[in-house]
Design a protein around this nucleic acid. Structure first.
Lengths: 120, 120
DNA sequence: AGTCAATATTGACAACTGTCGATCTCATCC
DNA sequence: GGATGAGATCGACAGTTGTCAATATTGACT
């Protein structure tokens, strides 16, 4: 359990696609793209992982601190963060031996906004 | 392509779970529940289906009007609307030979609100 | 009853996914 | 350099999922 270092740079911005679901019938490619992001979210372990990151002290955690609470093996946790990172929902940063992950809030907000028929 | 009848009753309300993702680490059961909803959303065909419903004239369509634009067989469309209905995201109503489906906007809004770390 | 049309269900199959053990990579410290 | 420890990757396996053809069900209309 290493001590978290203070972040040096602001959180990176994420591609936040903005094709509101309710505006017009989604094209096949837009639908595939949004589905990919939602697929990354649609897993209990990854949702818990995200919420743990968001609720953590410095809004970041290393893999070693995630395996225990999630009750999953280290390779499995590594797999999940990789899926989330590929979807742009988290970013990882290597500092020495550890890799620190944090959520990209803009990405989550983007997905939320696309979904909400009330327009948010 | 039958003519859509005017809706007689207001849209039904849906269970909108409200455990904000960012507030605290999600419990295993809460995560599973939210993941189930997201799994229902995380498919290109179902996303297109939802957006077609939302963008349609009377905010409802019958199965027969969905198969063509989606480019999927009738059983497959029937399968997808069933998944969406099981997740509470759409409701179907049989009128004569046809079944009319419409989105439950509250359900979508609920998911969007849970996801958004900005709190909406 | 009998026919027709829309929808739902079933069965089957290929593709994808979550999980873990084993192994590999890389940075740190002696 | 060698040892240690965190994390990533690989290979395998069970479970799930999207799809369709075939069939069943339901409602309308003679």
């Amino acid at each position: 359990m290493p001590k978290p270092l203070p972040l040096l740079e602001p959180l990176p911005t994420a591609a936040d696609c903005c094709v509101p679901l309710a505006a017009s019938p989604l094209s096949a490619t837009d639908a595939r793209e949004l589905a990919n992001r939602l697929k990354a979210l649609a897993d209990p372990a990854r949702l818990r992982l995200l919420s743990m990151l968001l609720a953590s002290e410095n809004h970041e955690m290393c893999t070693c601190d995630l395996t225990g609470p999630l009750g999953l093996s280290q390779p499995t946790v590594s797999h999940h963060v990789k899926v989330l990172a590929a979807a742009g929902l988290v970013v990882g940063e290597r500092r020495g031996t550890w890799t620190w992950y944090r959520v990209v809030p803009e990405a989550l907000t983007g997905v939320a906004r696309v979904l909400d028929p009330a327009g948010c």
